[in-house]
Amino acid sequence: MVFALFMIGTTFSVANATTRQSATTLARSAAVDEGRQIFLKGCSSCHGLNAEGGAIAPSLIGVGAADVDFQVGTGRMPMADMTVQAMRKKPAYTPDQVAALAAYVASLSPGPAIPSADVINYERDGNTAQGGELFRTNCAMCHNFAGQGGALSQGKFAPSLMQATPTQIYEALVLGPQSMPVFSDKILTPTEKLSIIKWIKAAQAEPAHGGASLGRVGPVTEGLLIWTLGLGLLIGIAVWLATKAR
């Protein structure tokens, strides 16, 4: 009796599990199909009908869901034009559509997955000050000391990080999009990546100590201000003082 009950229970739970499993598989395949449709309409003209790539765009087989989430989620793909590099802009697709596209591309061949909320819990696992050190050692040479971005050769540039979300930063570190190098887990451990994210979030929220920040791009804007507003104002006053005396 006990055995029979145990068997029934086990069978039921196994059966139940199978249906649940198949339900998620179904949902996933629905997402893959939707993603495929979006892909055929929006991406295949450059990336090929089966994402195999073409003369002007790389193959997407094996790039993984993270890549799609980053490139499409930041609005860089679809590209506005084929000039120097893809720009961050308003995403062309809704988050659901991006997820479907990501599911489709991930279904072609395994690649880096979108980091889960637990993986990128930077508030819990990151350290701001250490992140700052890591940022200045690994990122500031292109992205500037405050994450404002900077110029690279031939018109390429490291973008500003002021709008980047934690997931996007993590994905960029893992993938190395465009001119950016890949920061594998051997170069920056996941915890170190989270510290960098935590520092960037702090930099995004950095209060304007000492008044207007002047863009946080270093002394160039300061020099511009002293020659225009500073000296300009004083020369104006000097002219006024000299005129009054007449």
Binding site: G132, E133, R136, T137, A140, M141, C142, H143, N144, F145, A146, Q148, G149, G150, A151, A158, A203, E206, A208, H209, G210, G211, A212, S213, L214, R216, V217, G218, P219, V220, E222, G223, L224, L225, I226, W227
Partner: peptide, 25 residues
């Protein structure tokens, strides 16, 4: 207007550098 926000630059270490490093005008 803020000028030379040294807290943003971080302490000097020979191994580090920032994009847009400029001298005063």
């Amino acid at each position: 207007a803020s000028i030379n926000p040294i807290w943003l630059y971080g302490p000097y270490t020979p191994g580090q550098i920032s994009a847009g490093s400029q001298p005063d005008w």
